[in-house]
Design a protein around this nucleic acid. Structure first.
Lengths: 125, 125
DNA sequence: AAACTGTATCTATTCGATAGACACAGTATA
DNA sequence: TATACTGTGTCTATCGAATAGATACAGTTT
């Protein structure tokens, strides 16, 4: 399992795991149909609680990237790559919309970057 | 002071106050230059703590709607109506949507800032 | 039967948001 | 100058959501 968690990070463990798995699906490192490490195996390997892995997997399942089968395992969805592509497009589209509104409100490029940075920073605190 | 707070509401007291004052600025009920009730007066009248009013005023000031002058009072900014007109609400809404999509795509806060910065920089060239 | 799978629940901890109380420093006015 | 006001800063309490640990449950595989 090619995942590294940083326990002291601001980012919750389950989110770190979620992102890294998603990234591996996006890169093709994890193929559709492939079985993920079981929740217990992953938890043991990563030295975290079962619920931490469970939460990460749950989030991935809720978004359709993986499918959990009780007593069987968790598997990368066959349509995961399509979802990844779509999400990329969604990000682009959402960005375009956001940029449009900003420009219409008379915000400069610099102000937009500042705005996003500030909002993210405030959200993190 | 034409404000009513609902202590049992989900919405925090200071936000209720913030919204109602902003609404009054937007409607012209509060004019530019006009002095707002002092923090203490408002707190006494509304039966809330000083810091509750302070927080609401602080938010309004941070966004440029009012100006606080120590030992004098808080005043509606002269350019408050312009701020209201400017579709700031739209920017916020567009940002929220954009952020949502990014999060759903598994982007970390850092990655979002990078993405925006990169896109803006590329657009400028 | 043993060893595995995902799931559910109960609990503890931490942290931010909210808001109360009160002290501080500066200004206005009588 | 005494007082009554102004915004500000700090210390504290409470509440709830987020996070994550431990453990028990139910189903499948070998």
């Amino acid at each position: 399992m090619d995942v590294i968690l940083h326990p002291r990070s601001e980012e919750p463990l389950y989110k770190q795991l979620y992102r890294q798995i998603l990234s591996q699906i996006a890169s093709g490192d994890l193929s559709p149909g492939e079985m993920l490490p079981s929740i217990r195996t992953a938890a043991r390997y990563l030295n975290v609680a079962v619920i931490t892995v469970k939460t990460a997997y749950e989030e991935l399942e809720k978004e359709g990237y993986i499918t959990a089968v009780p007593a069987k395992g968790c598997f990368v969805s066959v349509n995961a790559p399509a979802l990844v592509d779509r999400s990329k497009m969604d990000v682009d589209k959402a960005y375009e919309t956001f940029l449009d509104v900003c420009k219409k409100s008379g915000l400069s490029d610099e102000e937009i970057v500042t705005l996003v940075t500030e909002k993210i920073r405030r959200e993190e605190c």
